[in-house]
Write a protein that binds this DNA or RNA. Sequence first.
RNA 1: GCGGGCGUAGCUCAGCUGGUAGAGCGCCAGGUUGUGGUCUUGGAUGCCACGGGUUCGAGUCCCGUCGCUCGCCCCA
Length: 411
Amino acid sequence: MSELQPVRGTRDLIGEDHRRHQHIIDTARRVSASYGLEEWATPIFEDTRVFSRSLGESSDVVTKEMYSFQDRGGDSLTLRPEGTAGVCRALVTNGLTQALPQKVFYAGPMFRYERPQKGRYRQFHQIGAELIGTAEPLADAEVIACGWDILKALGIAHDVVLEVNTLGDRDSRTAYRAALIDYFTAHQAGLSEDSLARLERNPLRILDSKDEGDRRINAGAPTIHAHLTEAAAAFYAKLKDYLAGFGVPFVENPSIVRGLDYYGHTAFEFVTSRLGAQGTVMGGGRYDGLVEEMGGPPTPAVGWAAGIERLSMLLADVPAAPRPVAVVPVGEAAEAPALAVLQQLRHAGIRAEMAYRGNLKRRLERANRIGARAAVILGETEIARGVAQVKDFVSGAQQEVPVAELPTRLR
RNA sequence: GCGGGCGUAGCUCAGCUGGUAGAGCGCCAGGUUGUGGUCUUGGAUGCCACGGGUUCGAGUCCCGUCGCUCGCCCCA
């Protein structure tokens, strides 16, 4: 074992790991494009205020989990812990609040200083979608439908359930929060130690406690539905209608919560039971207050993000390793003419490789090892006649093919 | 920050109540100087995570450290 290891919570993506990862991004990119989303790439580090503002009052809790550092000019910078804040900042700094709606897809690394566990890393990767500038519940349903289609295209939809909830508007949330505090205060004696702390700090979080006793108390807790304003209830009802219209199956889960103030109305998660404690593979909701936090005008928005590592663990169909064609010169004199054949194949779009050394036997061995689907064997006799021996590595059959026909025969 | 499990060859792992390091796969070379994959013969590879302790003797027992892993907390 070598002395230098990747730092805790990071890992190398090599071979199959990278193919899985890339397959997810490619698929999400293609599906989101069909919904009219355009891909953005924002910096992976930002002024710390981009994130501290978006975190609002709970910042002291979460700030401890950010990778923040000072640059040489003394500015505090932070490796992005999530993608939405940067997209909203970019929207504002590029003046795109004048060009709404914006439909955005992104993919890339995120960073959180957390204890690693299954499906949880310090450098991880997300894909995300944001629909900015639309207040209608149709937008919420559409962005969810987009996520659902991505999961379907990845072949993992059957392992995943969409759970939706509403957080209501500001008035709904204020009333609900008060009702929850009343309820849990009355049941303090049965709450776990952790949840007693949550009661002080973030009472909504008690609802998704993993503690057995808490869960029993939660079963009798008030739900937000009794506290929704008329407008908020109508919004939620429309969302559900539209989801049905898009053909997206879902269940309602009133315990889905969001900690931050700028979240309202729609909250949803695609969850699986196959990933241990990290069951959420894609989560999102409506965040009408965030663009304003970034210094823009009040702007409605809805979106989601999904962890690529978790999606990767659910992928059943691993993209196959590419199978090249191996060009094999026999003897030194054949090497230069073989290069011309090699380039002919490459320029025709065929993955082709030629070993750097070795006799015929060694080169065929090597070709087999790299998973070649065929070998193009060129000796002096073949070159003189303008042909090649093409050996199919799957069937083992070999036949003579004119050099000019190689690209079409090997396609 | 807290708790459980695990660290032996490139990989997956075996190694008993302490006696001086193993297998499979992979890798390298030969059997074949114009034919891979199959078959066959041979070969290389380890600070047994690190440091200390007990012992005539430690991969094995004890303590500490580090790392990995699963979970708690947190989850933007």
